[in-house]
Nucleic acid binder design. Structure first.
Length: 259
DNA sequence: ATGACAATCAGAGATTGA
């Protein structure tokens, strides 16, 4: 089963590029972030016509997450637990029912800039809630994954110019510590199972020719429970998508699971 | 330190992103 996570940076602006990619790449499951649309504004029938089940958790103008799946989706829940006053649409869960049932969590972790400040406080608080949900997932002892735009550069090797990001909310020590605390609960970061070293990125800024210079950062990730990690065949970044017409500033990241 | 670039909502320019 091939599963991709993709921050599309707006469904209205990306509908052409996204449908082209779906047609060609044919993911079994696509976990989308930044749909920037309310649920009613998401063109679900476009994807249903291609054979996908569609679940969205949107909001007006910003954020918004979705899951597209060729296989049935069950037990869909929206919103990260732990703060009923949080109105930002950044979390969606569903179980993909195939030969093996897999719990899929799609997330769009807050950016957190400027740091320090209230937006950074929100990011760290959100990561505490993520930590709690992650711990619950592990207690199920079943195949599950959390995938999406984490807005976290895990290590210096995950940025072309790490010094430029030192004080940024994506790379500050508190951010990386929070990421590591979640991973250390027992999750496998899929990409680093298959790739080492520098030069592997999932985001390139639109500005200053970042793509042409490969001046990127790796911030879109898969975290797998042990039962899911045992199914991992491969993980890769589809970087060439960044060079296409009217691209998102992110590219798809994939896992292939033996499921 | 700022802006470069893009998307959204709104219908100009502020806000957000990373």
């Amino acid at each position: 089963m091939k599963i991709a996570t993709f921050n599309i940076n707006g469904i209205k602006a990306r509908i052409g590029a996204l449908t082209d990619w779906i047609d060609e790449a044919a993911p079994d499951v696509a976990i989308l972030q930044e749909i920037k649309s309310v649920d009613e504004g998401f063109p679900r029938e476009v994807f249903e016509d291609k054979g996908y089940n569609v679940e969205t958790h949107g909001q007006k103008g910003f954020n918004g997450v979705a899951i597209l799946s060729k296989l049935p989706l069950e037990d869909v829940t929206c919103g990260l637990p732990g703060d009923d006053s949080d109105e930002q649409a950044r979390w969606i869960e569903a179980t993909v029912v195939g030969d093996t049932a897999i719990r899929i969590c799609g997330l769009y972790l807050p950016n957190g800039n400027p740091a320090p400040g209230p937006k950074y406080d929100y990011k760290l608080a959100w990561m505490e809630r993520l930590h709690a949900r992650a711990q619950e997932l592990l207690t199920q002892e079943e195949p599950a994954l959390m995938a999406g735009d984490y807005n976290i550069i895990p290590q210096a090797e995950d940025a072309a110019r790490p010094d430029a990001w030192r004080d940024d909310a994506l790379f500050r020590l508190e951010s990386r510590d929070a990421w590591r605390r979640i991973q250390n609960l027992g999750f496998t970061e899929a990409f680093r199972v298959r790739q080492t070293g520098t030069g592997h990125y999932s985001f390139w800024d639109y500005q200053a020719g970042a793509w042409d210079k490969n001046d990127g950062i790796r911030i879109d990730h898969f975290l797998l429970t042990p039962q899911c990690a045992d199914l991992l065949n491969n993980c890769w970044i589809e970087s060439d998508v960044r060079g296409r017409e009217k691209p998102s500033d992110h590219v798809p990241v994939w896992v292939d699971l033996a499921a």
